[in-house]
């Protein structure tokens, strides 16, 4: 077979047998035992802890990615909330400004109306005052005129008029005046 042929070839060429497939039972048994010890010892002190550590690391990385994704989603929803709140606030502010303008307008209208009314009232009062003052003045003027007329008439007739006649005369004059007026 293959092994025999190889040995033979070397043997023919060199006169001394050289066998590439030489198989030493000592080395084979030693290797078998050593490899089993190698696999057992490294399995216990290296492969098992290393694969466990790698798995743990993988898990922690996966967890962290998941957590980051959850956080990102949370942030997104928070951002949306805030944006909505900001939009509402802006609308509210506009509303408030509009309302304030409206209120101010109303207040202005009211104040103007009140001022107008007040002015009207004051004018009317002034007119009434003027009227009453005029009446009083006219009355006083009539009084004075009567008095002067009486004095003048007394002087003219040289005759003393008593107080009752005086008063009667005044009253008559006034009545006449009033009727004329």
């Amino acid at each position: 077979m293959l092994l025999g042929n190889m040995s033979l070839l070397f043997a023919e060429a060199t006169g001394k047998e050289v066998d590439a497939l030489e198989w030493s039972p000592d080395l084979a048994i030693f290797t078998l035992i050593l490899f089993i010890i190698f696999a057992a010892v490294l399995g216990m002190f290296a492969w098992k802890p290393i694969t466990a550590a790698l798995d743990e690391r993988e898990k922690s990385i996966t967890d962290k990615i998941e957590q980051a994704e959850a956080n990102a989603a949370k942030m997104e929803s928070l951002k949306n909330d805030y944006e909505a709140k900001l939009a509402t606030a802006a609308e509210e502010a506009t509303q408030m400004v509009l309302e304030a303008k409206h209120d101010a307008e109303a207040a202005k209208e009211r104040i103007l109306a009140e001022a107008g009314e007040e002015a009207q009232r004051q004018r009317e009062r002034a007119i009434a005052d003027i009227q009453s003052a005029k009446d009083a003045a006219v009355r006083e003027l009539a009084q004075k005129s009567v008095d002067s007329a009486v004095v003048l008439a007394g002087n003219l007739v040289r005759k003393e008029i008593n107080s009752d006649i005086h008063k009667q005369l005044i009253q008559e004059s006034l009545d006449k005046f009033s009727n004329v007026n």
Binding site: F38, V41, L42, F45, A46, I50, A53, R57, S60
Partner: peptide, 19 residues
């Protein structure tokens, strides 16, 4: 065997707990 044990034992300690 000894070199592998030293190297990988050391590695196992180094990355213990997912470090």
């Amino acid at each position: 065997f000894l070199v592998a044990l030293v190297l990988f034992g050391w590695l196992a300690k180094k990355i213990k707990g997912g470090a």
